[in-house]
Amino acid sequence: MKLQTQGIGYETAKALASQGLSVTIGCRDSAKAGTALQRIREAVPSARVDSVALDLADLTSVRDCAKRVLDSGVQYDVWINNAGVMACPKMSTAQGFEYQLGINHLGHFALTTEVLPGLQAADKPVRIINVASAAHQFGKIDFNDLMRDQKYDAWEAYGQSKLANIMFTYELARRLGPGSKVTANCLHPGVVKTELGRYMIADGQKTWYMPLLLEGFKVFMLEPEQGAATSIHLASQPDLASETGKYYVSCRRAVSSNDSYDREVAAKLWERSVELTSVAAAPAPVAAEPAVVAAASS
């Protein structure tokens, strides 16, 4: 399963298809999905790719997608949560969640926990990979204003959503427990030339110079295929089959922020996420811990 139809998501899907994997992409726009599938097939004639409807801003769509995945009987080897939004104005999802937390964290949380029983039932190694960001380092989980209703800052909200990605990954690894065939890892893809910054450009009507700055900064950005490298590494390297609860940057183990390793906050975020999304399949904590949860320096 590969989520997203362009940028890092597209390049990851194309690369995995070229390795002989059967790839499913999830997206909310059927026309864009069709274009992405056509491009992949043109680039990789032997590709086995299809798509499934998914709007992470609507939990009804998320649940429908999860049901279709489970009903399909497909036994996935890799599950990548890649889609996201960044620094958007104050907006809300269909369920009234702050847009960035709703899409970047709660949508992926609900989808992953809903399909988890199917991933576990396959009784084989399955890799769950969450695309986070170095922006988690300025993120704070504020349970008193999780939806940023009292005070909204686009970058603070983005940082919180990316920190949530990492804490979700670590907590999932802990709840799966030692010896689980399903693993969970996360990564920072780098600063990549994608449409992720589209809201910053749109805001150029208020800040006229932002589009110019972004255009100039592209010289220092990674190409999408470079940004996809770490996702592909985690998805395909044989020696990472049992790796879990880790954070990667540039295909190497890295250390995430101190806050990201706060187990009490992670457990509380998990329970709050369950309440908000009403997922029914979230795994309970296990008594034992994985051998290593905190990432080590490379």
Rank of each mutant, 00 (worst) to 15 (best):
K2I: 15
Q4G: 10
Q6K: 12
I8K: 05
A13L: 05
A13H: 08
A15T: 14
A17V: 09
Q19T: 14
G20H: 09
G20L: 01
S22N: 06
S22V: 02
S22Y: 12
V23F: 10
T24P: 01
T24A: 01
I25P: 00
S30G: 02
G34I: 14
G34E: 11
A36L: 03
L37R: 01
Q38K: 15
I40D: 11
R41P: 03
R41F: 04
A43K: 11
V44K: 11
V52D: 00
L54G: 07
L56N: 03
A57C: 06
T60I: 14
V62I: 09
K67Y: 04
L70T: 00
S72Y: 03
S72C: 05
S72G: 07
G73Q: 13
Q75F: 00
Q75Y: 00
D77P: 00
I80A: 13
G84Y: 03
G84M: 10
M86V: 04
A87P: 02
C88P: 02
M91D: 02
M91F: 06
T93L: 09
A94D: 08
E98A: 08
N104V: 00
A110R: 08
T112Q: 03
T112N: 10
E114T: 15
E114C: 01
V115P: 07
L116V: 07
G118P: 00
L119W: 06
A121Y: 03
A122C: 00
V126P: 00
I128A: 03
I129V: 15
V131Q: 05
A132R: 10
S133V: 05
S133L: 11
A134L: 12
H136V: 05
Q137D: 10
K140M: 05
N144T: 12
N144L: 04
L146Q: 08
Q150T: 07
D153W: 07
A154E: 06
G159V: 01
Q160E: 08
L163I: 11
I166Q: 07
I166L: 14
T169W: 03
Y170G: 02
A173N: 10
R175K: 06
G177F: 02
G179V: 04
G179L: 02
G179H: 05
K181H: 03
K181Q: 10
A184R: 03
P189W: 02
K193W: 11
T194C: 10
T194A: 10
D203S: 06
G204A: 02
Y209T: 09
L213S: 09
L214K: 08
E215V: 08
G216S: 05
V219D: 01
M221A: 04
M221H: 07
G227Y: 03
T230M: 15
T230K: 12
L240S: 04
S242H: 09
S242G: 02
S242R: 09
E243M: 14
G245W: 12
G245T: 00
K246V: 12
S250C: 04
S250D: 15
C251L: 01
C251K: 13
R252A: 14
R253A: 07
S256G: 11
E264D: 13
A266T: 15
A266Q: 08
R272D: 05
R272K: 15
R272F: 06
S273T: 01
V274E: 04
L276H: 12
L276V: 04
V279M: 04
A280H: 06
P285C: 09
P285Q: 08
A288I: 01
E289Q: 12
E289A: 14
P290A: 05
P290H: 05
V293Y: 12
A295G: 13
